[in-house]
Amino acid sequence: MIRSLIRQKNRIKLLQRFNFSSFSDAFTGAMHESRRSDLASGARYSLRQLEAFRAVAALGSAARAAHELGRTPSAISMALRELQSALGVALLQRSGRGLVLTTAGERLLPRADELLLRAGDLAQALGDARLPAVPLSIGASRTIGATLMPELITAFRQRHGVERIRLSIGNTEEVLSRVASFELEVAFVEGEVTDPGLEREVWTRDALVIFVRRAHPLLRTRTSAPRVSPAELIAWPWALREQQSGTREAALRAAASIGRIRIGVEATDNETLKRLVLLDDWIGCLSRRVVAEELARGTLVELEVSSPAVRRALGRDFLMVTDPQRYRGAAVTRFVEFARAWRGRRAAPAPGSG
Rank of each mutant, 00 (worst) to 15 (best):
L115F: 12
A57N: 02
R71E: 15
A350I: 00
L109K: 07
R3Y: 13
Q8R: 15
R289H: 10
P135E: 08
E271D: 13
R48V: 02
V291G: 04
G284H: 09
L278T: 08
R248I: 08
I165F: 00
I234D: 03
Q93F: 08
S307L: 01
L131Q: 09
A256K: 11
A79N: 14
T194F: 10
E271H: 09
V100D: 03
L198K: 01
G145Y: 07
V89I: 10
S4R: 12
V186I: 10
R200L: 12
R213C: 15
M320Q: 09
L233I: 03
V162R: 10
L233P: 01
T204H: 03
E163C: 04
A250V: 01
V134M: 15
R44N: 09
A133P: 07
T143P: 00
D206S: 14
L286H: 05
R288C: 02
P349C: 01
S168P: 00
F211H: 06
S137Y: 05
I263C: 11
R111V: 13
A180G: 06
L108V: 12
G329V: 01
T322Q: 11
D281L: 01
L273W: 12
E249F: 00
A155P: 03
T154A: 15
L276Q: 14
D323H: 10
E173F: 10
Q244S: 14
R288M: 07
L80R: 14
E304N: 04
S306R: 03
E199A: 13
A292K: 13
R227L: 07
S224A: 13
S353I: 02
T272F: 04
G246T: 02
T28C: 13
I210A: 11
G259W: 05
T103D: 15
E271T: 12
Q49F: 09
L208E: 09
R345A: 15
N270V: 05
E163H: 07
G298D: 09
I76G: 13
R220H: 12
A57I: 03
R227N: 02
Y45M: 13
A140H: 01
E151L: 09
S22C: 12
I169A: 00
V186S: 06
G127Y: 07
P349G: 02
G96H: 05
L115R: 14
A339Y: 06
G284I: 04
S168C: 03
A313S: 12
A250N: 13
P349A: 06
L198S: 08
E242I: 00
A40R: 14
F318W: 08
F53C: 06
G329D: 07
T247D: 11
P110K: 05
R340I: 05
L218P: 07
R7S: 14
S61K: 01
F211G: 01
R178I: 04
F182L: 12
L91P: 04
F182G: 00
L115K: 13
A63W: 05
R205L: 08
V290E: 06
R334N: 11
I2A: 14
E151C: 00
L101F: 06
R94A: 07
R142Y: 05
I261L: 13
A292R: 14
L59D: 02
A55G: 08
V301C: 11
S177H: 10
F318N: 02
I169L: 12
E266W: 06
E199N: 14
A58W: 10
R289T: 05
E192D: 12
R36P: 05
G170S: 07
S224K: 12
S37F: 10
